[in-house]
Design a protein around this nucleic acid. Structure first.
Lengths: 330, 330
DNA sequence: TTGAAAGCGATACCAG
DNA sequence: CTGGTATCGCTTTCAA
């Protein structure tokens, strides 16, 4: 493998000069520049990143903590981060915490041990205090938590607002008996969505019916089970708000199994807007989370933070996307 | 930051000894071992990976080339690779080629520049020869191509067989007019599936009807369009074999829009078995590709290859999973 | 078993 | 503008 020294020797200059040329650290006379350029070309010299890393103390790598590699939700965000990092010289090192605080902490330690220059954290179960602590060792940008420290920044999307929009939509379409399939009760977003549901009913003076609120788990299976319980309870309802799209998929299948049509018999609205929600039968009306944009914003922000540039973060917004799973009634 | 030298100094030994202790490179007397251990503990010493990397010439990193970060198909494989690498000391560096040969080559160069110790390649458009060439610079394990060099190994799943299974299933259920929505014609797997479709019809002496074979693109939109064309062509058919699950989703929506029921009016079978296929309405009968297992196998194999261990690769198999989108007729 | 010392390959300071 | 040289932190001969 050819090194700076060889290039230097062949070009008749010093290694320092080659380095300067390579990094544009200082002016290099035209003739030497030419010589160096041609030697690099001829010897097909490529700097050894490992040596650069050691010398500069930076790995030009961004650690990314996701919660799942196989979730459409997180994948989108990862793709966004990836895009943002394109051409910056930083590469993402992706690890998954599987919604498990200890595992997250462990993986992050691994990332730090690998000397990542920055960390992007997608949701998770770590406490804000822990993240703030970590941020003393490495700059952090997080999604799903409001953070604002010197080396830690984080934003959330307004899940409460999104839920309000969803329920509002249902009510405007004439629905008054609206079921809610909740998410995990230890999940901040799930809670916000529940609150939005409650408050919006209240706002419209619709009395909340405890029986219409059933547990889910943000997975299809939870949605399916929830609908079965709902149906067995004998409660009347014309619409259901599912805490996320996966839940809606499961719910939709449960309905299908009972021969209940969507939206003719029951309207369904979701939350997230996963890719496939455009192709469910019927296409799902849902609250869109712009996860790709979120990821991109996260990626750009961590790079700015590393470079000590002003952050001016672009926080993408939720919005309701109306498709065909909600029917106007009454 | 504390270094080996500091640890050595405080423990009253040499840096070499600390290093040996750390790597188990040689025996270290018990008393020194104790001393070193306690100093490491007390000083909370963590070796600098960057320095190790430079010295050993290895980054303890595996480059993984995927084609998409947001595809359920590739995500599964990535998760498998990730699992396989867990606890090996190797971390995956994931890049995406977006089904674009040039981009793939570029990204791979980036990975090599970062001194990855091995490469996992998931499908893509590079030619086998290119990969073999690359494998002189870094060991490679690939999916979606049959490779067997000293430093390159690759396997495919038997898409032809899978397609035969699918069509066979349809025929056994009494279908004789079977449409096929193809995948991209420059995609090896898509071609194999088409062939399987053709050969199986032939095997059962069902005359192939060119009109029943329509183009798709492995995406939902292609499936949707294809069905519209199919329906407009006025051809009669009772079942359709979709080149992949996404295509089936799109097809299913097109059918839904026309009020055509699945499977009562038309049976649908897919290929891949994405997660969501279990929750479509109706749940999709499809040929399962065990992508997670594929990824895991790939991950294990690249590590073995790096360590010069015998490979004995475990190649997972396709299998038909029967759900509810196919009806028995006749 | 242990230590001294020589690098790994680049960068950056200090003279000139 | 350029070159010599120390240095980043670790691993690994080579001798003892």
């Amino acid at each position: 493998m050819v090194t700076v020294h060889e290039v230097a020797r062949v070009a008749g200059v010093s290694a320092a000069t080659v380095s300067r040329f390579l990094n544009g650290t200082a002016r290099v006379s035209d003739e030497k520049r030419q010589a160096i350029e041609s030697v690099i070309e001829r010897l097909n010299y490529k700097p050894n990143v490992l040596a650069q890393n050691l010398k500069t103390g930076s790995s030009r790598t961004i650690g990314v903590l996701t919660q799942s590699l196989v979730s459409g939700y997180f994948s989108d965000a990862l793709a966004g981060v990836d895009e943002a990092l394109q051409g910056t010289g930083y590469a993402p090192l992706i690890v998954s915490g599987h919604w498990h605080a200890e595992e997250e902490a462990e993986r992050i330690e691994l990332l730090i041990a690998r000397r990542v220059d920055g960390l992007v954290i997608l949701s998770g179960k770590l406490r804000d205090a822990q993240i703030l602590g970590l941020s003393q060792r490495v700059p952090i940008v997080a999604f799903g938590r409001a953070l604002d420290g010197p080396r830690a920044y984080g934003f959330c999307l307004d899940n409460y607002w999104g839920a309000c929009e969803a329920v509002e939509h249902l009510i405007l379409q004439g629905h008054r008996h609206i079921a809610f399939i909740a998410g995990p009760s230890d999940h901040q977003d799930a809670l916000a969505r529940l609150e939005g549901y409650r408050d919006t009913l209240a706002k419209h003076r619709i009395k909340e019916n405890q029986q219409l609120i059933v547990d889910g788990d943000f997975q299809e299976s939870g949605g399916l089970l929830a609908v079965e319980r709902l149906l067995e309870s004998g409660q009347r309802f014309s619409a259901m708000f599912c805490a996320n799209d996966l839940t809606a998929y499961g719910a939709r299948l449960a309905l299908y199994r009972r021969g209940i049509r969507v939206p003719e018999d029951i309207s369904v609205i979701g939350f997230d807007d996963l890719h496939s929600s455009m192709y469910t039968t019927p296409p799902l009306t849902t609250v869109r989370q712009p996860l790709f944009d979120v990821g991109r914003s996260l990626g750009r922000t961590i790079v700015k933070m590393i470079n000590n540039e002003p952050l001016d973060v672009d926080v993408p917004q939720l919005n309701l996307v109306v498709r065909e799973s909600v029917r106007r009634i009454g």
